[in-house]
């Protein structure tokens, strides 16, 4: 019971801190908007997917990208907490590190999903066809996608001594994951070199993006999907589980 309330309080803290950071929320509109408006309308990629225009194609990808970048960035909260001393308050509390990790991780995931919702709303404004059911179905899926990604960010940050170091490592991971996910362009078919296809297949974000397309594009995507939604979610869930175990371990050894 104590552990659960500790978990809740740490979760609430992450969400409150995020919602109070106006600059971060406002700036979270900008990047996806640039991608959707400039990239999405400027690039005239001939897609091998009849019936879909490029903006429709990359919209789920941009949601995926937002979830990825935001989630990974959340690791910075560990570094801030250490820098400003609050980490000590958490680390000496009579609550197990598993719950500390879960509180922070799910709190940060919640923040990342809020960013995802913002992109979803942008999509509505840009005239992408969406409805409330899609939205309701999307929420738990976005949350599932962020768990593993936030866990990577938190794990990395728990090992890093400095903000600068974290920033560097982060971009080393973010960009390959992003480019290899099929968020911006298809990575399947005869014209794509084999090694690239394999790399893409090994990328957990590939399945996250496929899951988002399955939900957002619905029937229009079904003929081109990598695999059915439940299989996507299975892989993403497995990835989450592994990353959560690693993250919990990383927090247990943190001093």
């Amino acid at each position: 019971m104590t552990e659960l309330r500790g978990f809740y309080t740490l979760w609430l803290r992450e969400v409150k801190r995020y919602l109070r950071d106006r600059v971060r929320i406002v700036s979270s509109f900008v990047t996806p908007l640039l991608w959707l408006v400039i990239f999405g309308t400027g690039v005239r990629l001939s897609l091998p997917y009849p019936g879909l225009n490029y903006q429709q194609y990359i919209f789920p990808g941009i949601i995926g990208q937002t979830l990825l970048f935001t989630s990974m960035f959340m690791g910075i909260s560990v570094l801030w907490d250490r820098e400003f001393g609050f980490m000590k308050e958490i680390l000496v509390a009579p609550i197990s590190r598993t719950w500390v990790f879960l509180g922070k991780m799910i709190g940060d995931s919640t923040d990342a999903v809020i960013q995802g919702i913002i992109v979803f709303v942008l999509g509505l404004l840009l005239g992408i066809k969406l409805n409330i059911f899609t939205f309701l179905e999307l929420l738990p899926i976005m949350l599932l996608v962020t768990f593993g990604l936030v866990s990577i960010g938190l794990t990395l940050a728990s090992f890093m001594g400095s903000l600068e170091g974290f920033g560097t490592i982060q971009s080393f991971i973010n960009l390959p994951l992003f480019f290899l996910s099929g968020a911006l362009f298809p990575l399947r078919g005869a014209s794509i070199p084999n090694w690239l296809q394999i790399a893409s297949r090994l990328n957990p974000l590939t399945y996250a993006v496929d899951a988002l397309r399955n939900v957002i594009l619905g029937g229009a995507w079904t003929p081109f999907q990598i695999q059915p939604l439940w299989m996507d979610l299975g892989i993403v869930g497995l990835f989450d589980l592994i990353m959560i175990i690693i993250g919990t371990w990383a927090f247990t050894r943190m001093k």
Partner: peptide, 25 residues
């Protein structure tokens, strides 16, 4: 009470106390 500050500066005084109360059951 640590040598270096350890309150959450983005939270109010009362919120800091409430978080502590919850962490300590």
């Amino acid at each position: 009470v640590f040598q270096d500050p350890s309150v959450d500066d983005r939270m109010t005084g009362r919120e800091n106390l409430l978080m502590h109360a919850n962490l300590y059951g």
